Simulated scan of single mutants.
Amino acid sequence: MTETPRVLSYLEALNEALRLEMEHDPSVVVFGEDNIGGTGCDGTLGHAWGPTRGLHVPFPGQIFDAPITEAAFVGAAVGAAATGLRPVADLLFVDFAGVCFDQILNQAAKLRYMVGGKAKVPLVIRSMWGTGMRRAAQHSQALYSLFTHIPGLKVVAPSNPVDAKGLLAASIQDDDPVIFFEHKLLYFGSRDVVPAERYTIPLGVANVVREGDDVTIVAIGRMVHEATKAAERLAAEGVRAEVIDPRTLSPFDFDTVYASVEKTSRLVVVDESNPRCSIATDIAGNVAEHRFSSLSAAVRTVTGPHAPVPFSGPLEDAYPPNADKIVDAVRSTLPSSVVSKAS
């Protein structure tokens, strides 16, 4: 009898990664806002909805709730990491990182450098990001570009449950601070067959999601799914798009992107964040600088607008990149003869 494959949601995969790492290493401690959840009507504790749900039962000494004081508990996490623990701090929404930015920018990112490598900061800061849940301007941003700019931090943005589990495990085991971005719409909207065992996916290694030789599409986080939809539509027009998921933004696997551009000669970068000083412009700039002779068309970027995320449903739906916008961008890089044949 064939065994039914084990399918997990993105949220469940993150929960399993946390459980396995806490089980393997008692120095892994998890805390932040709503990590356990308050007391319900039945008097029981533990009503957190997210990836930490239920972990207080097997690990009562390794997980706790923190007050809504990001500066305090992120600062405590930096200190805990520097003195031998492996804390995983949960900011909930990345928009709140501004409250504790000094602790991240000037302490976590620089401590190991300032003491000549004599201290480690094995800290993970988990955070939700992205549009799609009607959370408006202060709860919907894609701020990974801010953290990628800071030397000393590693930045991770998984797009699917398999990667989410392996990358979170690798982040917890890493000796440097990692900012771990989890797109809100992926928690329940992305499901996959996930290995049950403990495993890691190395930071700094991109994944070629779909192979092609006509155009390279690099997409971040949830945008990988939109890029894949666009690639499927383009395939019906005879255009073979290669889709690359960087998985980590710092360190960034430029070698995989460069090799793809050398093959396809065209690049489209899809990034939900705002366009100025973004991951999209960083990738585009590096390719233009280091692989200009390989390009047969200008690099195109598909991003959100340079504006806050609106609360209006129709406006929010129009805000992020989607498959239609990606297809249009790809077509703009192709020779007119190919585009006219497709249309």
Score class of each variant (00 low, 15 high):
residue 3 E to L: 15
residue 4 T to G: 00
residue 8 L to S: 07
residue 9 S to H: 08
residue 13 A to N: 04
residue 16 E to K: 05
residue 17 A to V: 08
residue 18 L to G: 00
residue 21 E to Y: 03
residue 22 M to L: 04
residue 23 E to P: 02
residue 24 H to M: 03
residue 26 P to R: 11
residue 28 V to M: 02
residue 32 G to H: 05
residue 33 E to N: 09
residue 36 I to T: 07
residue 36 I to D: 01
residue 39 T to A: 06
residue 40 G to L: 07
residue 43 G to N: 02
residue 50 G to A: 15
residue 50 G to M: 12
residue 52 T to A: 04
residue 56 H to V: 06
residue 58 P to K: 11
residue 61 G to A: 14
residue 61 G to I: 01
residue 62 Q to K: 11
residue 64 F to T: 09
residue 67 P to Q: 07
residue 67 P to G: 05
residue 68 I to M: 12
residue 68 I to R: 09
residue 70 E to N: 08
residue 70 E to M: 10
residue 73 F to C: 04
residue 74 V to Y: 07
residue 75 G to T: 04
residue 79 G to D: 09
residue 80 A to K: 07
residue 81 A to G: 07
residue 87 P to V: 04
residue 95 D to F: 06
residue 96 F to Y: 14
residue 97 A to M: 11
residue 97 A to C: 13
residue 98 G to R: 05
residue 98 G to N: 09
residue 98 G to D: 03
residue 101 F to T: 04
residue 101 F to P: 00
residue 103 Q to K: 10
residue 104 I to P: 00
residue 106 N to K: 08
residue 106 N to T: 11
residue 108 A to M: 10
residue 110 K to A: 02
residue 113 Y to S: 14
residue 114 M to G: 00
residue 120 K to H: 12
residue 120 K to D: 15
residue 122 P to M: 11
residue 123 L to G: 01
residue 124 V to L: 10
residue 125 I to R: 05
residue 130 G to T: 08
residue 142 A to Y: 05
residue 143 L to P: 07
residue 147 F to H: 01
residue 149 H to W: 02
residue 154 K to L: 13
residue 156 V to D: 07
residue 165 K to A: 11
residue 174 D to K: 09
residue 179 I to H: 09
residue 180 F to Q: 10
residue 181 F to Y: 10
residue 192 D to A: 15
residue 194 V to D: 00
residue 201 I to Q: 13
residue 201 I to K: 14
residue 201 I to M: 13
residue 204 G to C: 09
residue 207 N to E: 15
residue 207 N to T: 13
residue 211 E to N: 14
residue 213 D to L: 12
residue 216 T to V: 07
residue 218 V to P: 06
residue 218 V to E: 06
residue 226 E to W: 02
residue 226 E to A: 15
residue 229 K to I: 15
residue 230 A to E: 02
residue 232 E to N: 13
residue 233 R to D: 14
residue 234 L to H: 05
residue 235 A to N: 07
residue 237 E to M: 13
residue 237 E to R: 14
residue 240 R to A: 15
residue 242 E to M: 12
residue 243 V to R: 00
residue 244 I to K: 05
residue 245 D to H: 08
residue 246 P to E: 07
residue 249 L to H: 04
residue 249 L to E: 07
residue 249 L to W: 06
residue 250 S to K: 12
residue 250 S to R: 14
residue 251 P to K: 07
residue 254 F to Y: 14
residue 256 T to N: 07
residue 258 Y to G: 00
residue 258 Y to E: 15
residue 261 V to K: 10
residue 261 V to D: 09
residue 264 T to L: 05
residue 265 S to E: 12
residue 266 R to V: 10
residue 270 V to H: 04
residue 272 E to P: 12
residue 274 N to V: 15
residue 276 R to E: 12
residue 277 C to P: 01
residue 280 A to F: 03
residue 283 I to M: 04
residue 283 I to V: 15
residue 285 G to P: 10
residue 285 G to E: 01
residue 287 V to T: 04
residue 287 V to A: 08
residue 288 A to M: 15
residue 289 E to V: 15
residue 301 T to Q: 09
residue 302 V to C: 10
residue 306 H to I: 12
residue 307 A to R: 13
residue 309 V to S: 05
residue 309 V to F: 01
residue 312 S to C: 11
residue 315 L to W: 01
residue 317 D to A: 15
residue 319 Y to W: 11
residue 320 P to H: 02
residue 322 N to V: 12
residue 324 D to M: 01
residue 326 I to F: 01
residue 332 S to H: 06
residue 332 S to L: 06
residue 333 T to Y: 07
residue 336 S to M: 14
residue 337 S to A: 14
residue 340 S to Q: 03
